[in-house]
């Protein structure tokens, strides 16, 4: 049986999710081990020196960004086709976490490039696309923030967020299709050293687990806001009824 959005929001649980706390512990431990492994076991690059070690969390951030924005895009499409508060809350959570990691990507990348390319930024396809997708996602967040509970704002935001998945795919294939300076470590033969491979996957798994916790936390936050809004509506309706009576 389908329930009204208000009735659905009133049933949002207030308790803290235990699974998220468990995931948080796993994520933090994995990140700690990854940092220790990177600091003590991985070799330094002859040319780049220590700045090569930016790579581990830079790529992890890229994975979190691409997955987050793609998931936001899918949930936005679901919300557009069949409006649902849970899909909307998930889309917003994925989008915001995706933006956090895209900002990590866009700050760690130029710091690596300063040593590798001699400059912080170059307008090559993958970098330019990453910047544009980040700006698109920030625009959606700003739009949702300004439009409040407006239905139109929600639909326009969702329509814009749908674009994030194809754009993420274009970022993934940018070097293959249009070339550019960006190195292709994973697609171009992989990492040769076993210690570097372990550090890389520890960083990726740790960051993705941590990103999942952030999504769950933000989702709960948005759902609680929806419940508060439903309670405000219920309260207003009762007060109006009492005044009429």
């Amino acid at each position: 049986m389908q329930t009204s959005p208000t009735a659905d929001a009133l049933r949002v649980p207030i308790r803290r999710p235990v699974a998220a706390l468990l995931l948080l512990a796993i994520g933090l431990v994995t990140i700690e081990v990854a940092l220790w492994w990177i600091a003590t076991r991985t070799p330094s690059d002859i040319v780049l020196g220590l700045s090569q070690k930016i790579f581990y969390f830079h790529v992890g951030s890229a994975f979190a960004m691409l997955l987050g924005l793609s998931a936001a895009s899918i949930m936005s499409l679901v919300d557009l086709l069949r409006p649902d508060d849970r899909a909307d809350a998930l889309a917003r959570s994925f989008l915001e976490v995706g933006v956090v990691f895209s900002l990590c990507l866009l700050t760690s990348g130029p710091l690596w490039a300063r040593k590798a390319w001699g400059m912080y930024w170059t307008w090559e396809p993958r970098l330019t696309l990453s910047l544009l997708v980040t700006l698109l996602a920030i625009s959606v967040i700003a739009l949702r923030s300004m439009s409040g509970d407006s239905h139109t704002g929600r639909r326009v935001g969702a329509a814009m967020a749908v674009m994030a998945a194809p754009a993420s795919y274009l970022i993934h294939v940018a070097v293959k299709w249009w070339g550019g300076n960006h190195p292709q470590v994973i697609q171009g033969g992989g990492i040769q050293s076993a210690d570097m491979r372990i550090a890389f996957w520890l960083a990726v798994v740790g960051l993705l687990t941590f990103a999942s916790v952030l999504v769950v936390t933000r989702y709960r936050d948005i759902r609680l806001q929806q419940r508060a809004q439903a309670l405000r509506l219920t309260l207003s309706a009762h007060q109006l009824r009492q005044r009429r009576a």
């Binding site: 330094s44 780049l48 020196g49 220590l50 700045s51 090569q52 070690k53 930016i54 969390f57 830079h58 951030s61 915001e96 976490v97 956090v100 900002l103 990590c104 700050t107 760690s108 710091l111 690596w112 300063r114 040593k115 941590f210 952030l214 936390t217």
Partner: peptide
């Protein structure tokens, strides 16, 4: 010329500052 260590430190600090702010 910037040392690799400074760049590495800056990258990690900015990343965790961003994530920490969001949390």
């Amino acid at each position: 010329s910037v040392s690799g260590g400074s760049l590495l430190l800056a990258a990690y600090m900015i990343m965790w500052a961003l994530v920490g702010t969001f949390v």
